[in-house]
């Protein structure tokens, strides 16, 4: 019992819990649409693309949220624009810009002479060190992203499922696509401190992927993704606290474990079901 209650005496732990639950919620909601749209790779790219923004903000002593948001949203729009214009597949464009932006971040990082532990936190996540101000920023951005999805859930769903029919019936499909890329970018900004650039993609993709294994209706898919996305940070943070190990990594590991359980037990892909079929045959 005290194992559960004790950590709550620490303000930093409560802040970290609040931040990572919010991050898990936003990532699950945005990630559900992202997975259905086949944009998992885009999530990985935008998180890496945020890195030069974070470093530049550090150099200019600006808030890191602003730098990360500019870099990620800028890259998202550039990917959308180049893909629509050029004759490149979107995954090709993503590959080019993703590596280019991350290289820019590493270059800027290498220009800093003294040791900057803060910046390593953005690579692997350091949610236990989140400040009250940063938590407030996470809360505001979360409300912005969740509010947008709440208003446009139908339009996003229709344009994801059948973009041609949606466009023909008057939905602004191209604008919705850009808006959604912007939402992914903002979600990544929100998530940077909790899990870091390298692991954000797991927060976005794994809850929705887990849900896809067990649900075949959109509303259930979203509900399960949210459940995984908000419960995993709680479990992950406690595990991290008890064992004094990396919090971001543990959150992602808990989600990965949930995915593997769903894979084993899921009604369609379940390994158990497959075995039952072979034994009965």
């Amino acid at each position: 019992m005290s194992l559960v209650v004790d950590p709550l005496q620490y303000e930093f732990f409560v802040r970290a819990l609040a931040a990572s639950i919010l991050v898990g919620l936003v990532c699950a909601v945005v990630g559900t649409y992202m997975v259905l749209r086949g944009l998992a790779f885009m999530g990985d790219a935008l998180s890496h693309a945020a890195f030069p923004g974070v470093v530049a903000a550090y150099l200019l002593k600006a808030p890191f949220h602003v730098g990360a948001a500019i870099a990620a949203i800028g890259t998202a729009l550039a990917i959308g624009w180049i893909t629509r214009r050029g004759r490149l597949r979107s995954d090709t464009t993503i590959g080019v810009l993703f590596a280019g932006m991350f290289a820019l971040g590493v270059f800027l990082f290498s220009t800093i002479q003294n040791y900057v532990g803060d910046l390593f936190g953005f690579l692997f996540g350091e949610v236990l060190g989140i400040s009250g101000t940063d938590l407030a920023a996470v809360a505001v951005l979360s409300v912005l992203v969740l509010g947008t999805v709440t208003v446009l859930w139908k339009e996003l769903l229709y344009s994801t499922f059948d973009p041609l029919a949606a466009a023909a019936s008057g939905l602004p499909v191209a604008a919705l696509e850009y808006l959604f890329l912007g939402l992914i970018a903002l979600t990544i900004v929100i998530s940077l401190q909790a899990v870091g650039i390298i692991l954000v993609v797991a927060m976005l993709v794994t809850p929705a992927a887990t849900a896809q294994l067990v649900a075949d209706r959109f509303s259930r898919l979203m509900a399960i993704a949210i459940a995984v996305g908000t419960l995993a940070p709680i479990a992950g943070l406690y595990l991290s606290f008890w064992t004094n190990t990396a919090s971001g990594a543990l959150i992602v590991l808990v989600e990965t474990a949930a995915f593997l359980v769903a894979l084993a037990l899921g009604p369609r892909t379940g390994l158990l079901r497959a075995r039952r079929r072979t034994t009965s045959a």
């Binding site: 259905l36 139908k154 339009e155 769903l157 229709y158 499922f161 059948d162 029919a165 949606a166 019936s169 008057g170 939905l171 896809q212 649900a215 075949d216 209706r217 959109f218 259930r220 898919l221």
Partner: peptide, 16 residues
């Protein structure tokens, strides 16, 4: 494989 039932698809016709 999209997670929608027949009824959900038809409802999309009402969204615009």
């Amino acid at each position: 494989s999209f997670p929608v039932a027949a009824r959900d698809v038809v409802m999309m016709g009402r969204f615009p």
